[in-house]
Every structure is written in structure tokens, then in C-alpha cells.
Design a protein around this nucleic acid. Structure first.
Length: 117
DNA sequence: ATACTGACCCCCG
DNA sequence: ACGGGGGCCAGTA
């Protein structure tokens, strides 16, 4: 598969994440139909143009942590966007999705969905 | 071709 | 909660 096609699938998967929900890089990759593509997802998002409509901020690391260093510019940007959707973000970057427990159909998470509540 | 890097992931102390 | 190690795939030099 060509990279452009993969990028398209990835962006579609990210766009499919409902507001108030979050998904890990790995899950986004799998949902896009790609294997072991977490790094590629990260790369695609990092190359995303500033004004894009893609909800990149709903993508977090496995474990529900914001990928950026706590306190960094990007971290604060992402945190604000998530909180605007009802998510709760700790200073360390742990994200609690606004609608995580119900409506699993659309919600994706990482390998460890059960680690907190 | 090799070598290093990155908004990653997983396993084991 | 910390560390360390390996694997992964694309991009870049």
C-alpha cells in the first residue's frame, strides 16, 4: 500500500473518533486497517497542517496519556481542546474521556481499557 | 546500501 | 511510580 493511501486511511480513522472520546495511536492504526502503524500515525499527525479539521487532539498514547511533554506548548494546546469537549486532563497528561464508559461502538482506546475505571 | 530519529508499543525488573 | 531493552515503520542524511 502506498503511503498516501495509508495517510488517508489514518486521517479517516482519526476523524471518526467522536467528540469527547479518545483513541491511542495503535488503535487508530488498526482501525485504519494497518498493522503496527502506531509510529506512522504519529508521523502523519505531526505533519498535519495547522488549520486541519482532523481532531488530532483525540489521539493519545496507549495508557491514555497525552503524547507531548507535560507543560509544553503542544501539550497545553491539546489539553485545552480535550477539556473543551468534556474530557478531564491531569497536569501529568492523563486523559479521562468524557464518554468512555458507555457507547463502546465508536469509542476506541488502547490495550488497557480497564486500568482505572 | 547503512545509520539515526521520532506526537509509538510491549515486556520485564 | 521509575528504569531498561527490543521491535516497529517512514523519513532523512
Amino acid at each position: 500500500m502506498k503511503i498516501d493511501a495509508a495517510r488517508d486511511l489514518i486521517l479517516s480513522a482519526v476523524t471518526a473518533i467522536p467528540a469527547g472520546a479518545i483513541a491511542s495511536y495503535g488503535v487508530v492504526g488498526e482501525r485504519a486497517g494497518l498493522q503496527r502503524s502506531a509510529r506512522m500515525v504519529a508521523r502523519v499527525l505531526s505533519q498535519l497542517p495547522a488549520g486541519s479539521a482532523v481532531p488530532w487532539f483525540r489521539v493519545v498514547r496507549s495508557g491514555g496519556r497525552i503524547a507531548f511533554a507535560s507543560g509544553s506548548r503542544s501539550f497545553q494546546r491539546q489539553r485545552k481542546l480535550l477539556e473543551a469537549e468534556g474530557c478531564v486532563v491531569s497536569d501529568e497528561g492523563r486523559v479521562r474521556a468524557a464518554r468512555a464508559d458507555n457507547s463502546l461502538d465508536a469509542l476506541l482506546w488502547g490495550p488497557m481499557m480497564g486500568s482505572g475505571e
